[in-house]
Every structure is written in C-alpha cells, then in structure tokens.
Design a protein around this nucleic acid. Structure first.
Lengths: 154, 154
DNA sequence: CTTCCTGCAAATCGTTTGCATCAGT
DNA sequence: ACTGATGCAAACGATTTGCAGGAAG
C-alpha cells in the first residue's frame, strides 16, 4: 500500500534526526501523491482531512523543516505565492514550469556544467535555474482565449 | 542634468495617464541609477533621502503601478523577497548573489543560449537563473569565523 | 524518560486599503 | 477646478514564535 518513495522520504527524515509523526507520514503521502506544487494552505486542507485538529502553524513548521533538509523544494509563484513540492531525491536536474497549470517537467541540462564568465573570486555554493512558459495543453487554451499580455519596451 | 532614460520612463508614465510627481521622478532616477533589483524597503530608504516624509505605502503603490504598466519588473528572490528593477534597461544578464552580504554581480552567460533537451511542445516565456555563493570579501570573513553551515543530503 | 512535536494564541512582517488633504494637469 | 497622488493609520494576510501538554524514540 505504501509506495517506496514515501518510505524513502520518511527514512530521510529520521536519518536527519527528525521524528516520524503521523502528520509527517501523511505529509509525505500528500506530496508524493500530488507530485506538484502545494501552498501551505493546500497542504493544510489536505492534511485536515486526515487530522482535523492539525494546525496551520504545524504545517508551516514541517514545510520549512522538510525544505531545509532537502526533502521538499519551494518555489515562489508570482501569482500564487510560495509553494512546495517533493523534490526528486534522484539526480540533479532543473524544471520547466508551466505558468498556467504549474505542472513541471524536469530536464537534465544544468547551466553550471557549461558556465563561463564567472569571476573566480566568487565561491559558488548553490544555484537556481528554472524555465517558465506554457506546456502544450495550456498553449492551446491560451490561443483560444488570447489572454497573452503584450509588453512594449525595447 | 537628466539622462534620457529617465525621461523615457517618465514619458511612459504620463502617456499612460499617470501624473509625474516628484516622488515618481525620483523613483525613476533611483531605479535607473541602481540598475539592479531593489526591495520596497530599499526604495523607501533611498527615496527618504530626498523626501523624508515619503511613506512606505506610497512606495508600494508606485512600485505596483509602475510594474503594471511595464516600467518596472518584479522578481521574487527566495531569500530577499520581492524586488523590483527597471525593465530591460541594459542587456540581458543574470546574477551572482552573495548569500552573506546580498550583493549581486551580474554576468552575461545565459543558459537559454546553450540550452538543449527541452521538449519543443513547451513554449518558453521566461527563465530564472541565479547563482548563489560567497563574494570574495565574505569568503574571507567566513574562513575566519567558520560560520558556514554544512548540508549533507545526496 | 527525555526530547522533539504539536496546537493554541499572540506576535510579527510585508503589503494593502480608507480617508482626508495636497499637488499635477 | 478636477482628479489623481500622497501620508497617515488601521486593516490584512501570510508566516513565525512562546509556551504547555503530548507523543516518538
């Protein structure tokens, strides 16, 4: 009944010295089932179905903790605010993010492998590379609705 | 005394039916002089030097307005929150961001020019590429103080 | 049993809004 | 003059924190 990834996630938590509470177990399920980005409120609502007494601040706390230890990754959507998703515990990659439906597709290219022109007195620790756009299905939608804003500065 | 881009910006404003107030004129100067991303508070502080009585909410109002009409663009930095910068003044570039002092250095390399392996049914609209690390001076500091946190997930 | 986790409530931070006044056109 | 812009203060939403009780190891 439990897919392996859930255990992997829980495992990672306990290995980092965090306790496996029911909420966290459920949190793992929620993220792995959904696969996409969830706002704290989304998570709270989903979690409430299992634990009606859960409090929003616990959700926040756990989201932050899990992000810190690299189990979740967070993105800020210009319109939807901060959201979290399970990060693939697999290999390094980046994402295409659909600006409409928020679905993500990962790809392997990493600019850091090809990077040039960075002053070498700067010590690189981390990086972020995301490509935003429209996935195929959302493109079709927007062609019909013509909701695409024009920008006009050179 | 006025550089042309400032007037261009002000022009755009009045063309859209907005009044040219002193604050907005100064706002234009601030953004064009700085060239980089500024948080509302940054702007407020800079603006305060010229107009000690300026209020933060006016700054917010103007930042939003100017973003709406495409004079400023906004970006959310995972650590620094929402920031604004004058739209496409210069050429396209990305940033090195010092995780300690938050100073940014721009560099020209853009991964989009070299990108491969993106499914072509995805319509790219925008992208974000930021490199985080330590600038030279902060490296020296952290070597002395050994404040660098370790992360250890695979 | 000890320490971490949780729920509650209150605090805090960033941002927005209502309103009367002031300034640009 | 008319209308939009500003400053103030208060409202607001999202996120964080202090604390006491409860659960995981």
């Amino acid at each position: 009944m439990e897919a392996s990834p859930v255990n992997k996630m829980l495992d990672a938590m306990s290995r980092q010295g965090f306790r496996i509470t029911d909420q966290r177990r459920t949190l793992a399920h929620i993220f792995l089932e959904d696969g996409g980005y969830l706002s704290p409120k989304d998570v709270y609502e989903k979690l409430s179905k299992f634990y009606p007494s859960v409090s929003l601040d616990t959700v926040y706390r756990n989201l932050r903790t899990l992000s810190d230890i690299g189990i979740l990754e967070q993105f800020y959507f210009m319109d939807g605010g901060l959201k979290f998703k399970a990060c693939s515990l697999n290999h390094h990659h980046h994402h295409l993010i659909c600006m409409n439906c928020e679905k993500t597709v990962s790809f392997d290219y990493c600019p850091m492998d090809h990077l040039g022109g960075i002053p070498d007195d700067f010590k690189v620790i981390n990086h972020r590379f995301e490509v935003y756009g429209l996935c195929e299905s959302c493109q079709e939608l927007s062609e019909q609705e013509k909701t695409s804003p024009q920008r006009e500065n050179e």
